[in-house]
Design a protein around this nucleic acid. Structure first.
Lengths: 220, 220
DNA sequence: TCGTTGCAAAGTGTTGACACATACCGCCGG
DNA sequence: CCGGCGGTATGTGTCAACACTTTGCAACGA
């Protein structure tokens, strides 16, 4: 059984992703309640959960707003991701079975083929999510839920705004293979280093992109 | 202004720490509400927040219970802590000012003196918290809130149960100085390694202790 | 003109009652 | 004697109304 506040949580999150609530926008409990035809109770719970995953910021008696991350906060996000995803990668090297690794390599190659086929076409990139796959393979539910839950939502919010940095995807793919090789070699140390570097590079790209956007948007 | 649900959150958390709700115990909204003389609304929010930090587990329409971590989950907790606290330490090496480091060294030594003075006496150990200090010095609010918020609460819950592993405190103190030296040398790489090893050792000690307790408690 | 003070409007916090789902328990059939 | 089956009892989910806080505005005085 799913409760109303569950559905509201999901719907509102999607609305935020869809840009319906831009970063900085206010979220009004009564308005949301009216929109979905429910009372304010479930709405409150949903908003609290959004606050819990850090996508909405709120203080007592103040209106809730969609977070607007500063450059410093984006940096913090990536530092945390680097730490956790690096560790996840190290653990995966230790814990994945050979069969898991083979399947992983197969899927990664299939994704490459699909990506080449889709080149130039519009629409969502057929992104078999390398990162999520590694993270889940870590066998650490806590790290997985932190990365694939909270952090993922925030990153997604800002990746969307920055236009997904497509040009990096070839480079990224090469790095993915490099990491996979380390996993197959059961070299946790190396796998962790590679993943960290990989995440750090993504961070640099994203912050550059955000800086450009900000410069263009606020020429004040 | 602090709201009712804030106070309830704190009170209930303390009640859990105090052992009033043991791991596995059920948390009844109506009972809690009656106990504090408030309605169920704020209680619900408080319980949801406890669920948010992972100290209470709950599914729709099911009674909420205080989490009972399995050995595997404790392991996961420490893996995550190792990753985050290692990174925090690396960042601290980069970002702490010389004055910060001097003050830190001074306080650490003062804590040593107090600890020796208090030896053999009963009561709470005068624990200047080395770890929290390092974490906050990382300059990463997100990592800080994860470690000093969620994870800290869970660890505290289980550390209490295990009787605080006092005998390790001398050893730990030596390791703390070692880490501080790395920080002063601005060697982030080393500081991270040392902190990781330090956390890993604590994990080993704690799991050993928990195993003993479980063996004693469930001789079935 | 500008800062201050008081009021009104909007929004969040809290409440108690009602609707719904789950769990415990005695009953019945096998 | 045991396992499936309703019914009740407990507890969570939801609602609509009320209380409190914040905020924006407007009149007032310096």
């Amino acid at each position: 059984m799913t409760t109303l506040s569950d559905k509201l949580f999901t719907s509102t999150l999607n609305a935020i992703y869809a840009g319906e609530f831009a970063p900085g926008a206010e979220i009004n409990e009564a308005t949301l309640a009216a929109r979905y035809g429910v009372s304010r109770g479930p709405v409150r719970e949903a908003v609290r959960r959004l606050q819990g995953i850090g996508i909405v910021s709120r203080e007592p008696y103040m209106r809730a707003t969609v977070v607007r991350l500063t450059a410093a906060q984006v940096r913090e996000l990536f530092e945390m991701r680097e730490a956790l995803e690096g560790m996840a990668c190290r653990l995966a090297a230790r814990r994945m079975s050979d069969a898991d690794l083979d399947r992983f390599a197969f899927d990664l190659d299939a994704a490459r083929v699909r990506r080449i086929a889709a080149r130039g076409t519009r629409g969502p990139a057929p992104d078999f999510d390398f990162h999520e796959r590694v993270i889940r393979a870590s066998g650490n539910a806590r790290i997985t839920s932190a990365l694939c839950g909270d952090l993922y939502h925030l990153l997604r919010l800002y990746r969307r705004r920055s236009g997904a940095v497509r040009e990096r995807s070839d480079e990224a793919h090469a790095e993915h293979w490099q990491i996979l090789r380390a996993l197959r070699a059961r070299d946790g140390e190396l796998a962790e280093s590679l993943m960290r570097a990989h995440v750090a590079r993504a961070a640099v790209k994203l912050t550059e992109r955000l800086r450009e956007l900000d410069a263009a948007a606020v020429p004040a």
